[in-house]
Nucleic acid binder design. Sequence first.
DNA 1: GATGAATGAGCATTCATTCAT
DNA 2: CATGAATGAATGCTCATTCAT
Lengths: 203, 203, 203, 203
Amino acid sequence: MENKEDKKIKILKVAETVFAEKGFHATKVEDIANLAGVAKGTVYLYFKSKEQLFFSTIKFMIQGMIETIKERMAGIEDPLDRLKIGIKSYFEYVTHHKQIFFIILNEEIASSRKSCEKDNQKKHVEIYRQSQKFVTDLMKSCIDAGYLKPIDPVLLSSALSGLLQKMVVNSIVFNIDINPDQFYSIAVDLFLNGAMLRKEAEK
Amino acid sequence: MENKEDKKIKILKVAETVFAEKGFHATKVEDIANLAGVAKGTVYLYFKSKEQLFFSTIKFMIQGMIETIKERMAGIEDPLDRLKIGIKSYFEYVTHHKQIFFIILNEEIASSRKSCEKDNQKKHVEIYRQSQKFVTDLMKSCIDAGYLKPIDPVLLSSALSGLLQKMVVNSIVFNIDINPDQFYSIAVDLFLNGAMLRKEAEK
Amino acid sequence: MENKEDKKIKILKVAETVFAEKGFHATKVEDIANLAGVAKGTVYLYFKSKEQLFFSTIKFMIQGMIETIKERMAGIEDPLDRLKIGIKSYFEYVTHHKQIFFIILNEEIASSRKSCEKDNQKKHVEIYRQSQKFVTDLMKSCIDAGYLKPIDPVLLSSALSGLLQKMVVNSIVFNIDINPDQFYSIAVDLFLNGAMLRKEAEK
Amino acid sequence: MENKEDKKIKILKVAETVFAEKGFHATKVEDIANLAGVAKGTVYLYFKSKEQLFFSTIKFMIQGMIETIKERMAGIEDPLDRLKIGIKSYFEYVTHHKQIFFIILNEEIASSRKSCEKDNQKKHVEIYRQSQKFVTDLMKSCIDAGYLKPIDPVLLSSALSGLLQKMVVNSIVFNIDINPDQFYSIAVDLFLNGAMLRKEAEK
DNA sequence: GATGAATGAGCATTCATTCAT
DNA sequence: CATGAATGAATGCTCATTCAT
C-alpha cells in the first residue's frame, strides 16, 4: 500500500546508497531501480533524468541532515552550546551517511563541469551552499556572542566542515579505532582550541 | 626531439589538467592524447589503461608535491617551523593544483569500486596514504617535540588537510576575496590556536 | 454524457490530427489520449493497438472523404461533370486534411514493413485501394462515355491524385500564393488538357 | 583496399535501401551497419547521427539522380526534347530507386516536425527544394520557348513529378503490368496533352 | 467502463581498447 | 615507435501495453 511519495523516497534512499558507493558516472539507473524494487522506467516517472535524480538525492540527504540537526538543537539557547551540539549532530550524521559525503564535493564541483550548461553548475553550487549556510549561520551567532574569533564565518565553517569530514574519512581509510565520543571531543577541541599544546597556560 | 620519458611526462601533465577539469569518467583518453599532441594509440604505449593512467597521474602529482615541499623545508630544523613552512608549501601547492585535489579522494574511494578488483582499491588507498604520510610525519615530530597535543597524528594531519582543502575550495565557491598570505595566516592560526576567542579574563 | 461511439469517434478525430502532424512512429498514444480527454488505457478499450488505431484513423478519414464527395455529386448525371465536381471535392478535402495525406502512402507501404506480418501489409494496401477505387470508378465512367482517353483507369486516377496531391503539397512548401479556385482551374485544365501550349497554327 | 570515401558511399547505398524499406523511425542504425559490413560504431565515424545519415542518404540519392539526368540530356538543345528525355530519365531513376521515393516526402515534411528544431526542418526543405528545382528549371525553359502554358513553373513541375511518382507507386501497388516504354509514353502524353479525348481535333 | 502507475523491451550513441599499416 | 580507423560492450531513456483499483 505504498503511495507515490513513499515510493519516491524509497528511490531516493536507494539512490543515496548507490551513488555513494559508485559515484555519479559509474552508477546505472537500472541498479537503483532494481535495488528499490521497481523497474527502470519507474524511476523516470519520478525523476526526469539520472542527473536530476542525483540532485534530488543530495538535496534530500542534506535537508534530512539539517532537519535532524535542528531537532537536536531545539531548546538550546547559548550559541556555543548550539555550536557544540551542532557539531556533534553533524558528526553523527556524516558518520551515518559518510559515503554520500565522499562524492558530493567532487561530483558537484568537478564532474558537473563537463555539462557546459551553466544551469546544472548553478544547481550544484546552490545545493552545496545550502549545506554550508547552516553551519555558517551557527558561526555567525558564536562570533556575535564573542565566543569565536571574528574571522569570515564562511572560512570558519569551511574549516570546521573540512576538518570534520576529512577526519571521518581518514579514520576509515586508515582504520583508526576510536569511539564516536572520543572522536567528537578531539574534533571540537581541535576546532575551538587548536592543535598547539599550551604549556604556559596550563601551568 | 623528445625522448620517451619526456613524452610520458607530457602525457601525465596533460592528464592531470584534464582529469582535474572533468573527473575520471567524463575524461576521454582521446582528449588527453590530443592535448598532449600524440595519437590515441600512443597513450596506450605508455599506460596500460585509462585507469592506470589515472593512478599514474595522481601519483605523479603527489610525488611532485612532496618533492616541492621537501625542497622548501630543506635546512630547517625546528619541527614547528618545518610544520609551518610545510603548511605554507602545501597550501600553495594545493592552490595551484586545486582542481585535481577536488577529485582525488572521491575517485579513489568511490568511483573505483566499480572495478570489483580489490587491486585497484588498494592502489588508490596506497597513493592516498602516501600523500597523507608526509603530513602525518610532520605532525609526529611536532608532537614529539612537545609543540602539538598528543593526538593520533593521522587525525591531526587529517584535520589539517581537511581544514586547508575545504577553505581553499569554499573560498572559491563562495567568492571570498582574500590574499594568499592572509589566508595562510588564518589557516595556521586556526589549526594551531583554534577558533575560540581567548578573552583577557582568561589570561 | 458521451456514449461509446462518440468517444471512439473523438479519439479517431484527434488521432488523425496527431498522426498527421507527427507521423506514425513519432506519435505517442498518450498524446492522442490526452488531446481526446481520456486516459491512456481508455484508448486500448477501443483499439487493440497503436497500429490498429492508425489503420482505423486512415479508414475513417477516407470513408469521410468518399462520403463527402458522394454527397457533392448527388444528382449530377454527366460523367465529366461528376469528375469535375469530384476533383473539386477531392481537392478541397485534401486541402483540409492535407497533413494526413502526407503520411498515408508512406507509412502504409514503408513503415509497416517492420511488422513482418503480411496481415498488416494487406490491411494497408486494402485501405489504400479503397481510397483510389472511388477515383478510378469515376475515370471508368468518363472513359466509357467517351470523354477521356482509353487509358488504364488506375493509371489515370493515379496521375490525377498524384498531380493534385503534389501541387497542394508544393504550393505549401514553396509558399505559392494562389487562391483555391485558381488552383482548381489550373489542376483540372492540366489534367484534362495537358501542359502543352496549343498554338493557333495547330487549330 | 577500400578507402574512406568508398566506405562512406557503401554505407550511404545500404542506408538508402534500408531507410526506403522501413522508413526513418523503424530503421535501426545497427541494421545499416551490419548490411554495410561494418560495426555500429563505424557508422558514427562517418555520420554524426542517424538523422544526419538520413539527410545525407537522401541528398546522395537526389544528387545521383540529377547527375544521371544531366548526363542523359547532354547535347540536346531543344527544351521540349530536353524535357522529354528528362521525364524519361526521371522516370527510370524513380523506378530504380522507387522505395526511397516512398519516404522522402513523408519523412521530410511530416515526421521531421517532431524535432522542433527549425534547423532540421530547414535542411529537409532545402534538400527537397533542390530536387524540385531541377524539374522547375526545365519547365521554365519550355515555357520560355513557347512549348508549355505560362503556368507557375513550380506548379507545373509539381504536377509532373506528382503524376509520375504516383503512377509508378500505384502501378506497383495495383500490380499493373505495363512496360516502361508504354508507361513513359502514357505519362508524357498525359502531362503534355491531358487526359481529355480530343475527338474534334482528331477528325 | 475508466484510470494511470508500472513495466521492460528496444535503440541511439559513446568511448576505451585494439591492431593493421 | 606511432597512428587512427574500427570495434562493440555498455547504458540512458522512451513509450506501447498491461492490469490492479
